[in-house]
């Protein structure tokens, strides 16, 4: 400004540096303050305490007969609980790993010591549709497991991807057997 240019005080180089440092420090502190103030707002979008507390589900599996499957809800998503037949178990166990896009042995996917129980998250790993194959009326795809109608992914009796666009096997959730007939997912 013209009216100030005239009486710009004659700060020496030293005064200049001190002033610049002050501006920088105050500005920096202000920026830190704004960033810190943004954090609680961003964090408020993360799952709330009550949402996290409901992160486990208990299921009674006594009534699921061999060959049958039920769908339960866990964290708002469907979970497939299938009581596999001996035939299905054998099929899953005998599949050579080199035929699998996402190689995983069946023993690592079914319940430990209880191979008849297969529990997987019923969400196709392609784009999140729910595969068919739970009810007798639905197709189980070419590998006897599940078939995703959205883009044609086929899963086998271990919930592993065999053909189609899905990149990964159906996710296995953490499962604890509370008794022989009752499980906790999560």
């Amino acid at each position: 400004m013209a009216q100030h240019g005239g009486h710009q005080p004659n700060h020496g180089a030293e005064g200049e540096t001190r002033r610049d440092f002050l501006y920088l420090a105050a500005g920096g502190m202000g920026a830190v303050g704004v960033a810190a103030a943004a954090w609680p707002f961003l964090r408020s979008w993360s799952p709330a305490a009550d949402t996290l507390a409901l992160a486990s589900t208990e299921v009674d599996i006594a009534s699921i007969r061999e060959g049958q499957a039920v769908t339960v809800t866990w964290r708002g998503k469907p979970v497939f609980v299938r009581h596999r037949t001996a035939d299905e178990i054998k099929q899953a166990a005998d599949t050579p790993l080199n035929q699998l896009p996402d190689p995983q042995p069946d023993a690592r996917r079914s319940a430990a010591g209880k191979p008849q129980w297969l529990i997987v998250v019923g969400v196709c790993t392609h784009l999140g549709c729910v595969p068919q194959g739970q009810r007798p009326s639905e197709t189980r795809g070419e590998f006897g497991g599940w078939f995703c109608p959205c883009h044609g992914s086929h899963y086998d009796t271990s919930g592993r991807i065999r053909r189609g666009p899905a990149p990964k096997n159906l996710e296995v959730p953490p499962v604890t057997f509370l008794t022989d007939t009752s499980i906790r997912i999560g």
Binding site: Q8, R19, Y23, M29, G30, G33
Partner: peptide, 21 residues
Amino acid sequence: LFLIVLSGMLYAVKRKVWADV
């Protein structure tokens, strides 16, 4: 504490800026 320190610094800046007015 943060705001009090920030206020102090901004006051110093304000005084520097206004020194020539």
